[in-house]
Amino acid sequence: PPLQNNQPVEFNHAINYVNKIKNRFQGQPDIYKSFLEILHTYQKEQRNAKEAAGNYTPALTEQEVYTQVARLFKNQEDLLSEFGQFLPDA
């Protein structure tokens, strides 16, 4: 049966995914760094929007996050499709 609170599942999935990206781009640290920057920008924008209680439109939408990551992960279809599983509105 599915877990009532599957937060640990999401957490483990995220850990495995970050680890996979780190390994894949071991020789290209700039790509990994850019990926982290996209995530952090997204998180910051989400926080701003939340704090402004609807009076602020995030500059980085889920669609734009996906587009940026797709550009970064070109030729890494498996990483990109797995990333899509994390996005709230992809």
Binding site: A14, N19, K22, L36, H40, Y42, F86, P88
Partner: peptide, 27 residues
């Protein structure tokens, strides 16, 4: 074993909160 920096951990945090948000919006 994982060798995660604080930056990696925050990426894990963002990704899992995204997934949580996705689950909430889908259900």
């Amino acid at each position: 074993s994982y060798d995660f920096t604080p930056l990696d951990s925050s990426a894990v945090y963002v990704l899992s909160s995204m997934a949580r948000q996705r689950r909430t919006s889908l259900s």
